[in-house]
Amino acid sequence: MQRYLTDRKRAVGLGSGRAGTEHHWKMMVSSMAIVVAAPVFFILFALGYQLPYAEATAYFGHPAVAITLAVTMVIIIRHVMNEAIEAAEDYVHGTAGQLTIVGITWASYLLMIVGLFALARMAI
């Protein structure tokens, strides 16, 4: 029997207009970003974290160190925030799920702000 739905009609809404895959694609982009950002953050942090107070604040307050750590920290925390949101979307449902996502987002941005504040305070 002849099919009345055209091929196009059957395909509309199922393909990738990149809207339904937006979150996934953003995870891919931030996945590639952390491949660079995380080692840079880790090495810079490790180099300063055993220094005594005065030297540590001087080191972390150095403009190049502070700015590089600030950028990479935001990339990393944003990535793991989305990772946690993705997990919440999959495993926590309904109102509890929505509140969990709000909580994760709130806590993650708070973390970024406190981290940026600390780096700026040592740098200025």
């Binding site: 942090f45 972390f60 990393i76 993650s108 973390l111 406190v114 981290g115 504040f117 600390a118």
Partner: peptide, 22 residues
């Protein structure tokens, strides 16, 4: 990934205390 989110709390707290006082 979620463990790293937890770890970042420790790292940020460390930076924060360093910026506050000895």
């Amino acid at each position: 990934g979620i463990v790293v989110l937890g770890l970042s709390v420790v790292i940020v707290a460390w930076l924060f205390t360093a910026s506050i006082s000895e």
